[in-house]
Design a protein around this nucleic acid. Structure first.
Length: 584
RNA sequence: GCCUGGAUAGUUUAGUGGUAAAACAAACCCUUGGUAAGGGUUAGAGCGCGGGUUCGAUUCCCGCUCCAGGCUCCA
């Protein structure tokens, strides 16, 4: 059995769903129902009828009933006229028929039992035998043809497999994925907070989440300093005229918050850092010898996201970018681009993230952009030249460019399989010109630099969400909010526990001591669930050694349940420091 | 923004037109226990916010805020 068989099974399942819906809701108008990577869906216009997840068992039952009579799926070609007559009551199908005709393609219909659908085919041959293991999963809204100007249809999602085992396994995986959802773990491990008092998409990083973020920030600053970046700080607001110059006011306004008045002048909250970094570039005469000039900042920008788009830490209204603007000569673009790319991959490797793909974002016809076709072509060529030097696979995607230039994005999946854009590298010939940036080249002439905008991780909010799910909350030692827990067996050993705690603290190891009047087993359970990497256990034996030999010894257990035996605490600390230094 | 759900102690959840129940967590007491929950006691919410219906609303209705799954959009 190959993937095509599974696609066919699911496609047939979507027909079955449509058939069941039409029997239960004769007034419904069915539209489109394709298979997906994980199942299938069908988009249906239920008219004034409201469908919720409570209705799914009823529909599923009807599907099981109907499928018994589906011994085959027959396809045949029909004429334009016949097709129009057959689907005369369904305006959606009529629209599709017109399109098929417009493309000069054959019109085909597929029949199983009493159900007939306009369809290009791709079905299994005997649904009554093969289509047994399916489940309807959820109800959602979806715009007709994916356009928000169109009517909102009801989409019913489901999945289907050839065997019960596969279906059960998939459903089990869904449940497992929910357990590593960053929102669930974020609460259990106390990493961040979203409250309706503060407002939608506004994230509060609690102490432990903030520790993780700070480790990443430190990593970024250190690595970028090695690579010649200059780190700056800039304000969160600036004069409106700045964003008029950059083009944001014209082309990015729907993402920006409304202006505020300060001393009779209009100011805007920044959606990007570019204008500020440009002003720093512009603050003095630049020589070609200074290029590439890499101005970097870990900075929070604010963007309006529609209420329904917000999602935990993955989609918020303030995003902290590991941002930089690299000003360079045109002939330096490819090398700089590759340098950024290699650095990005280096970072992802530290986090053990290897499941991503690259997307080349290009202009689409629908949107508005700055600049001429030639400039866009040149920018795209620079990116393609860079990636072809590395032999990288990428997908081209129209409509995913920035308004000032094309970009290469790194797309990573979350626990439940949704794709998120993280890192981004963008080539821009527009903004330096608009801001009248200059440098004196070796021939003494004044020239305009090219610009690379880049954020290797994208945003810390989104990236930390990805990390929480990637590690399922069990962060590597260097990132763990609490690295070591100290567990005295009873309160008789509190003072030794605190003395040992101090040894860790003196070496900047993040340690937490549990002095509560609880059993050892209970303390172990707590710290295991909190995913603390190491547990240091102190009892009578350890105290005896300390009294007799003046040596700090303790039993160590890992969160995985491994017993590391009795260790010398000082040596253990050195081991940990080495591990932390290696990002393990 | 649109479609469909949802919001009850710190957390996870139960529940009802007559002013809320449990588990875990917390505090205290007993226990001083060597590798994933020792035992007991106590305190803790008036059921997201605003309005309406009602003798009476946490429960029904309306609006809002926020959350979830999608759509659209995006770092």
């Amino acid at each position: 059995m190959d993937n095509q068989d599974l696609q066919n099974l699911r496609h047939t399942a979507s027909h079955l769903l449509a058939a069941a819906v039409l029997e239960l809701y004769p007034k419904a108008k069915i539209t489109l129902g394709p298979p997906t990577d994980t199942g299938f869906y069908y988009d249906i216009d239920f008219g004034s009828e409201k469908i919720s997840e409570d209705d799914l068992p009823k529909i599923e039952k009807k599907m099981k009933e109907i499928v018994k009579k589906w011994e085959k799926v027959e396809g045949k070609e029909v004429s334009y006229k016949e097709a129009k007559e057959m689907f005369k009551d369904n305006p959606y199908k009529l629209e599709l028929i017109e399109e098929i005709k417009g493309r000069g393609e054959k019109i085909t219909i597929y029949k199983s039992g009493d159900f007939i659908d306009l369809c290009r085919g791709g079905h299994i041959d005997n649904p009554s035998k093969k289509l047994k293991y399916f489940k309807l999963l959820s109800v959602a809204g979806a715009y007709w043809r994916g356009d928000e100007k169109n009517k909102m249809l009801t989409r019913i999602y489901g999945t289907a497999f050839f065997t019960k085992e596969e279906l059960d396994k998939y459903l089990w995986q869904l449940e497992e994925a929910k357990k590593r959802d960053h929102r669930v773990l974020g609460k259990k491990l106390d990493l961040f907070l979203l409250t309706n008092e503060v407002g939608g998409g506004l994230l509060l990083w609690t102490e432990k989440g903030a520790i993780i973020r700070r480790q990443i920030e430190n990593l970024i600053i250190n690595e970028q300093t090695k690579r010649g970046y200059l780190h700056v700080y800039t304000p969160h607001i600036g004069k409106k005229s700045l964003w008029q110059t950059s083009g944001h006011w014209d082309l990015y306004r729907d993402k920006m918050y409304s202006s505020m008045k300060i001393d009779d002048e209009e100011y805007l909250v920044k959606p990007m850092n570019c204008p500020f970094h440009m002003m720093i570039y512009k603050s003095k005469i630049r020589s070609y010898k200074e290029l590439p000039l890499r101005i970097a900042e870990i900075a929070t920008v604010y963007r309006y996201e529609k209420a329904g788009e917000l999602s935990g830490m993955l989609r918020v209204r303030h995003i902290t970018q590991d941002d930089s603007h690299i000003f360079c000569r045109e002939d330096q673009i490819v090398d700089e681009f590759l340098g950024v790319f290699e650095y990005t991959i280096y970072l992802l490797k530290i986090f053990g993230i290897s499941d991503y793909y690259l997307r080349l974002g290009l202009r689409s016809k629908k949107e508005k952009y700055l600049g001429s076709d030639e400039v866009w072509k040149k920018a795209e060529e620079k990116i393609v030249e860079a990636i072809s030097k590395k032999n990288l696979n990428y997908v081209r995607s129209e409509g995913d460019a920035a308004f000032y230039g094309p970009k290469l994005d790194i797309i990573i999946k979350d626990a439940i399989g949704r794709e998120w854009q993280c890192g981004t590298i963008q080539v821009d010939f527009m903004l330096p010109k608009r801001f009248k940036l200059e440098y004196i080249d070796e021939d003494g002439k004044v020239k305009t630099p090219a610009l690379i905008h880049r954020a290797p991780l994208g945003s810390l909010e989104r990236f930390v969400a990805i990390l929480i799910e990637h590690y399922a909350g069990a962060f590597p030692l260097w990132l763990s909010p609490t690295q070591v827990a100290i567990l005295p067996i009873s309160d008789k050993y509190s003072s030794l526990a605190l003395a040992i705690e101090k040894l860790f603290k003196n070496e900047n190891i993040r340690v937490e001591t549990n002095l509560k009047n609880e059993t050892l087993a209970k303390k172990i359970r707590y710290f295991t669930l909190q995913k603390v990497p190491y547990m240091v256990i102190i009892g009578e034996r350890e105290e005896k050694i300390f009294k007799e030999e003046k040596k700090y010894m303790a039993k160590v257990r890992t969160r995985e349940g491994k017993d590391l035996g009795l260790v010398d605490v000082i040596e253990f600390i050195w081991d940990l420091k080495e591990k932390i230094g290696n990002f393990s």
